[in-house]
């Protein structure tokens, strides 16, 4: 059965770009354009992986969503891929070794990722 991925981004173009890539890779996608919509969908549905845009309403909206996912036993193990277009300006080092203890994501990348790269990272997170 095809894996289901939730794409969270307030930029509709990035939703469309990543959706196109994921669907070309054989995944089923669901999308959310705001933190509120994302949290509602996370509560209501089951996903195999979540891709979150870091900066939405707030500079750290993405982290809030990640904490929520890690906070519930049902969703705790969903792999999270964090994306951002300005990693050097967020104040986070984006070094897994340094930040993973508290930054509850499994991988992060600067936007935009080349299609093959995105698919490869997702495959790695899903251990395919």
């Amino acid at each position: 059965m095809a894996k289901k991925i939730l794409l969270i981004d307030d930029d509709p173009d990035f939703i469309e770009i990543n959706k196109t890539i994921l669907e070309s890779g054989g995944y089923v996608t669901d999308t959310a354009g705001s933190s509120a919509e994302a949290l509602a969908k996370i509560r209501a549905n089951e996903y195999d992986l979540v891709i979150i845009d870091l900066i939405m309403e707030e500079l750290d909206s993405g982290f809030t969503i990640a904490y929520n996912i890690r906070d519930s036993a049902r969703t705790r193990d969903w792999p999270i891929l964090m994306l951002t277009s300005v990693q050097e300006k967020t104040g986070f080092s984006f070094d897994l070794a340094k930040d993973q203890a508290w930054m509850k994501v499994d991988d992060f990348a600067a936007k935009p990722l080349r299609p093959a790269e995105l698919l490869q990272r997702i495959a790695a997170l899903l251990r395919e």
Binding site: D13, F14, T20, S85, V86, K89, P112, P115, A116
Partner: peptide
């Protein structure tokens, strides 16, 4: 303000690059 501007400038460029990637990498 500078980080905000950087984000606002990079987002559209990222989207443009993303679309170009889709087309050039043959996804569509």
């Amino acid at each position: 303000f500078v980080s905000y501007v950087a984000h606002e400038l990079k987002a559209p460029l990222g989207a443009i690059e993303g679309y170009l990637n889709l087309i050039l990498d043959g996804i569509t």
